[in-house]
Simulated assay, not measured.
Amino acid sequence: MQRWRCRPTELKEKIIEKSLTLFEQHGYHGVSVNEIVKACGTSKGGFYHHFSSKDELLFVIHDYFISYVLTNAQEAISASTHPAEKMKKIIQSFVKVFDLYQPHISVFYQESIYLKPPYVEAIMKKRKMYKEIIFSVIEEGIEKGVFRSELPVEITGMSILGMVNWSYKWYKRDGGKTIDEIGEIYIDLILHALLTDK
């Protein structure tokens, strides 16, 4: 019997990978657990060993990329002392997520309305943490005279989040710019908007 040839972590990744393809093709409600396990060559037991439900699978798909940007943002504020350097590192990792987790992001934004309330709450908690990190870096930059004091922190922070988040709508791996080049453009735009003459 060929089932369970993958190690547990490999099987989990395979389930996510195959479900992303199926969700993109048929939509979240157009795909059953049976179809996912068939595509993976595993059993329902294999699926439920890693995910309690298809709802949890959709949550994990989102959690992968929000955890990536949150962890990198936390590392940025710990590793750097200058607000501009912190912002640069945060933007670099933020933009990179649209390349690393492109299918995850695409599926999530199409299907997130189907998430159950407990999963929505968990997602919103991490998003709030990420937003607060960006706000805190802007506030620090203003306090140190590095960022322009006339810019409202909340509007500025939400503008950064909105601008970079919209990348999922247009970014293509075979486009004219690499993800790193796009990141540098965002950094240029954002820092030139934030920085004082100092």
Rank of each mutant, 00 (worst) to 15 (best):
R3C: 05
R3H: 10
R5H: 12
R5S: 15
P8H: 05
K12C: 10
K14G: 14
K14H: 13
I16Q: 13
E17K: 15
K18G: 09
L20F: 11
L22D: 10
F23A: 11
E24I: 07
H29D: 15
G30R: 02
G30Q: 08
G30V: 11
V31F: 11
V33P: 12
N34W: 06
E35W: 06
E35Y: 04
E35N: 06
V37M: 09
S43K: 07
S43V: 12
K44N: 10
G46A: 08
Y48F: 15
H50Q: 07
F51H: 05
L57R: 10
L58A: 06
V60A: 08
I61L: 14
H62S: 10
F65S: 04
F65N: 02
T71L: 14
A76F: 02
A76W: 02
I77E: 00
A79Y: 07
A79K: 12
S80L: 06
S80I: 00
T81Q: 09
H82G: 02
K86R: 04
K86F: 03
K88D: 00
K89D: 09
V95A: 01
P103L: 03
H104I: 07
S106W: 13
Y109A: 11
I113P: 00
P118E: 06
Y119D: 10
V120N: 07
R127D: 04
K128P: 04
M129H: 06
K131S: 06
K131R: 14
I133W: 04
I134D: 00
E140V: 09
G141S: 05
K144Q: 14
F147W: 04
F147I: 05
V153K: 09
I155W: 09
M163V: 03
N165M: 03
W166H: 08
Y168I: 09
Y168H: 13
Y168R: 05
K169N: 12
K169Q: 11
K169M: 13
W170G: 01
Y171E: 02
K172D: 06
K172E: 12
D174I: 01
K177T: 09
T178N: 00
E181W: 04
E184L: 01
Y186F: 13
Y186I: 01
I187D: 00
L189I: 13
L191M: 04
A193T: 14
A193R: 02
L194H: 04
